[in-house]
Amino acid sequence: MTGFPESDPGASGLHARWYEANRLAGRLTAQRCECGRWRTPARYRCPGCGTDVWSFEPVAPVGRVVSWTITRRPLHFAFAEAVPYGIVVVVTDEGVRFLLQYRGDPDEITIDDEVGIAVDRFGVPYADSRPD
């Protein structure tokens, strides 16, 4: 996987703070409410208890594949060099769910398999084959 464009996601608001939290932690984080509920994407208030007291906390850098796709035709010129590339929906042990680019061999993606999760220098998370 060489062609995936690595760049500042240019996010706003809570999403920008999430990438920054990932970057500072050097690993994937997710928003967690004081009531213990995880939430992603980041939200202003907890859909469970309704409060706005929360923090970004690290989650396990491993996820199980719930579903996937392999993009074979770029839908945007920025990804012209990246195809074919995988996208996976993963769930971590904590039950937190993410949609992530997959930087390993996309043809190896299998539902229920485990993948590793890391973050790049901009705090953008990605999945890869799990290191043995």
Binding site: P9, A11, S12, H15, P41, T71, H76, F79, I87, V124
Partner: peptide
């Protein structure tokens, strides 16, 4: 824009 496009989901 903020969460999916950076993953290549456009």
């Amino acid at each position: 824009t903020d969460v999916m496009v950076p993953q290549g989901a456009i």
